[in-house]
Design a binder for these strands. Structure first.
Lengths: 189, 189
DNA sequence: GTCTATACGCCGATAGAC
DNA sequence: GTCTATCGGCGTATAGAC
């Protein structure tokens, strides 16, 4: 082998990272294999040494991204409400609206995941359910966990569609405020 | 003119309707001009008698769809909470999850709208704000209106990513239930 | 593992006949 | 307004040299 043992792993990792960013920014279907490889300094044909098809790459991106989202949002081990509220504040943030490439894949790739084949959706379901379970444990409410998750994803989808930063900010503030009230209500209950 | 006066309008309307359904189902970027025209029994070249470019069509689809969503959800003239709650029940429904082509454009095209140029996003903002204002009037709360709107859109994005109908249903039920509590809380306040 | 070269189809868009 | 024919580019994917 003309290349070192770890080289393939490194290349694949670089490709995954670069592709994930691009997919969240411009949409997966809008990316070409050639452009993806050029972005990491390789030719288009080299792509097929790492993935059998473009769809195969998408499955890998989804798994990687959702695993990462779970780490960021659900955390490992026991959590508490305070840490959850800090996560929500980071999630419902203008920086997150303006930089989809650095943020959660659910608002950015949700529609494309929804249109993927069953294998990808089962992967997505796995990680999304893990995140929901993590939140449900903290909140002691299954339905509240689903509701807040949906609201966070929706807030970013809605805000990113808007043209003016002021209204985007108002969407984020509103969701943050209303979630705060839901959390407070669930605490005294 | 070899074609009747209303012919062009009818054809354009048929094209808009057919394209809107396809866009919500498979995503706008995945559609080809040729396929869109074949779907209404015309050749691909005839497209350019109605729209100057594919992007021009997307702008028209967004305007048409969001205007329609406003009619369905915001209604014209005065509304009341009961009618709003009936709308939410229809929105947070498995039929809506399973048939994106018949439903709201916000969950289906949100990410693509977000990536469009400023003109499209200004259009989107216009209609979304009208819807929010309509709800805010009923609910007597700006932030609650934004929060519920986000939650509804997010619920559909999340549910459609999932593989199993049972969990999809649970997402819808959870959001419906939690929104119900938010509405009740805002009523007594 | 990566390269160049290439196959082959679909893409958006235009030209010109009717 | 719609058609057929066509252009030039880019899409995914493969073949074979190194």
């Amino acid at each position: 082998m003309r290349y070192s043992a770890g080289h393939k792993l490194e290349t694949k990792e670089k490709l995954l990272q670069s592709s994930s960013l691009s997919a969240k920014k411009t949409g997966f279907s809008s990316m070409g294999v050639d452009g993806l490889m050029k972005a990491i300094g390789l030719s288009g044909a080299a792509f097929y040494s790492h993935f059998s098809s473009k769809d195969d790459l998408f499955a890998a991106i989804v798994e990687r991204e959702l695993c990462q989202s779970l780490e960021r949002l659900g955390g490992q081990g026991k959590q508490d409400r305070e840490r959850l509220e800090r996560c929500l504040k980071l999630y419902l943030n203008m920086a997150h609206v303006e930089q989809p490439e650095l943020g959660c894949a659910l608002p950015a790739l949700g529609a494309e995941i929804a249109r993927s084949d069953i294998v990808v959706r089962e992967q997505a379901e796995l990680w999304i359910c893990k995140l929901q379970e993590s939140w449900a444990q903290i909140l002691e409410s299954d339905s509240l966990a689903w509701a807040i998750l949906s609201q966070c994803v929706g807030a970013l989808v809605v805000a990113r569609m808007l043209a003016s930063p002021k209204i985007q900010q108002r969407v984020l503030n509103s969701c943050h405020e209303e979630i705060g009230q839901q959390l407070a209500a669930s605490r005294v209950q």
